[in-house]
């Protein structure tokens, strides 16, 4: 009896909701992760009303939508999400909505299946979702976004196309820059140890060996054996610095570092979420906003080089 009341109320309000139109006549685009939001904003600029669900330091694996989020998704003209169960709690919902005709862009679809990695810890089924670690793969998601936006706002199709191309070029440059920077670290010291397995694509793109404490999803608990195995690995390879992540609790990695007698980098890496928009820093003569995709990659690369060189 109780649930009926609940769902009934819910249904009622959802129905009411749909009658509300988006403000200002601009199409509403809802992006889940901060990276996805940044992608859309770079391509579309001011032409659409962009709303991001998650903020900085929010872990997409664990993200639980609120009622306002739910309503936002319902009202959106386009939903852009990463896919491959990165947004674990939302995926089922989003797929169901797509099935009912909602225009959804699954960024992971832009990357060909053969380029996706299967996770290291014997995960059957879904590939590793952290493909934005490789700027070239991120570049491949642009066309699908441009297409979706063009369908919704045909008048600005040309502008979207241009925006997309500019971003693509920038990502190419970024890839080259990152590669050369990371080569500054001698090969045997180029090992990245982080809180969870978020950097395999990054590692593959730039020749860095990667190892995480937890598996692909930060929602799973790191077992005792995972921790002691990692400590053994650190000792064996003589790794000197570990890296925390902005969106993941660092207690685990700190414990590992303490046991192995190494330090954790004072600056966490951005794995599943970017920095705060407008957070400009200047490193090695270069200034960038850590709240953007480009800034995020640059921050990660600089931090890693700083820690491992």
């Amino acid at each position: 009896m109780r649930w009926m009341a609940t769902v009934l109320v819910f249904l009622g309000f959802s129905a009411c909701d749909q009658s509300r139109s988006s403000s200002g006549g601009k199409p509403l685009v809802v992006a889940t992760t901060t990276m996805a939001a940044d992608l859309v904003s770079r391509i579309a600029g001011d032409r659409v009303e962009l709303r991001g669900l998650m903020g900085p330091e929010v872990d997409p694996h664990n993200y639980i939508p609120t009622l306002p989020d739910s309503s936002l998704l319902e009202r959106a003209d386009v939903i852009v999400y990463s896919g491959l169960h990165l947004e674990g709690r939302l995926q089922g919902t989003l797929e169901a909505m797509a099935g009912r005709g909602k225009r959804c862009v699954v960024l992971a679809d832009g990357v060909g299946e053969e380029r996706l990695l299967s996770p290291q810890q014997g995960f059957e089924g879904t590939p590793d979702p952290h493909f934005w670690g490789d700027p070239l793969l991120w570049r491949d998601t642009i066309p699908s976004v441009v297409m979706a936006l063009s369908e919704v706002l045909p008048g600005s199709a040309a502008e979207f196309e241009t925006g997309g191309r500019e971003l693509a070029d920038e990502l190419l440059e970024l890839h080259a820059w990152a590669k050369s920077r990371l080569q500054e670290i001698p090969a045997e010291r180029r090992v990245l140890v982080t809180s969870h397995d978020a950097f395999f694509y990054f590692g593959r793109a730039f020749g860095v060996e990667v190892r995480g404490l937890q598996g692909v999803s930060s929602a799973a608990e790191a077992g005792l054996k995972d921790r002691s195995d990692l400590v053994a690995f650190i000792r064996l390879r003589g790794i000197r610095s570990l890296f925390g992540e902005s969106s993941v609790n660092d207690k685990g990695i700190l414990a590992v570092a303490k046991e192995a007698g190494v330090s954790v980098s004072p600056e966490p890496l951005f794995s599943d979420a970017m920095g705060r928009p407008g957070d400009r820093v200047e490193v090695a003569g270069e200034s960038y906003d850590r709240g953007t995709y480009v800034g995020m990659i640059k921050h990660n690369v600089n931090t890693i080089v700083g820690g491992l060189k």
């Binding site: 929010v58 608990e221 790191a222 077992g223 005792l224 921790r227 609790n249 685990g252 414990a255 303490k258």
Partner: peptide, 17 residues
């Protein structure tokens, strides 16, 4: 969304400091 609540909800023996 405080960090570290998972440890209390599900227990994380590996993160005991």
């Amino acid at each position: 969304k405080p960090g570290g609540v998972q440890a209390y909800l599900f227990g994380q023996a590996a993160a005991i400091s």
